[in-house]
Every structure is written in structure tokens, then in C-alpha cells.
Amino acid sequence: MSEQELQVQEKQMVQQEGEATKPEKYFIPAVDIFEDEDKVTVVAEMPGVKTSGVDVALEDDVLTIRGHQEDDAPKEGRLLLQEYETGSYLRRFTVAETIDQDKIQATMTDGMLTVELPKAAPAKPRKIEVQAG
């Protein structure tokens, strides 16, 4: 798997309903979502977003990930080559599991956001012993 050559993935724009008041561009970040017994983990690719620019919210089973990127183009100078666009990131998911809202943790490292959503107690698998009677 690690021997594979990385391919260029074109950034996809978020299709918004209505118009935004600010002339901001929103892109859909690529994500990995995996689940184990205790939690659901969402990893999102958001280069250029600082820890302070991340906004994670869970409301009515909808998880919203938003990463605000400040324009980091040099103040002076002209653009010779532009192969990617910069902008903010936005993506929403409907979470099927019951999540313990108070224990949600989010960390930002090297432009990757990791959100851990611990499952609430009743959703954890429980083994039911069958009693011989």
C-alpha cells in the first residue's frame, strides 16, 4: 500500500444552498472514517488550517467540520504558477451512532484533523449471556 504513487486529487467545491455573504471558497476535505468498539474516528485533510481555525460541532446527529484558512499568499509578488486553490473547508455527516457529546475530542496535526466521537454507553456492544433454565 505504501509503495503506491500519490495521485493528484482535484479539490471539490462545496455546493452551497443560497449565496454566501462573504466571498469565501469552501472545499470538501477528503476524510477517513473508521469505527471501533468505543468510538467513531473522523480524519479530515485540511492543509493550512490552524488549530484556532477549526470548528467542530455535533447537532441533531449532524457532525459539521469546518476549517477556516487564512489567505497565506505572499503580500508582494506575482503568481507564476497556480495548480491549487486555497480556501476554507466544510463537510457535514449524519452520525448514526449515539455519541457522548461531552467527550468529543479534536486534534489538529500537520494539517490533518482527527475527531474522536466516543459512543455513548448504551450503544456499546454488550454480550448477553444465555442462561440455561
Binding site: M1, Q4, D32, D36
Partner: peptide, 12 residues
């Protein structure tokens, strides 16, 4: 145990 989405590529 289970992946729901894998969109982030790894490689050289």
C-alpha cells in the same frame, strides 16, 4: 474494526 470511508491516499 471497520472503515466507513477511505478517501485519504497514502503513498510516495
Amino acid at each position: 474494526t471497520s472503515y466507513h470511508r477511505r478517501e485519504i491516499a497514502v503513498g510516495n
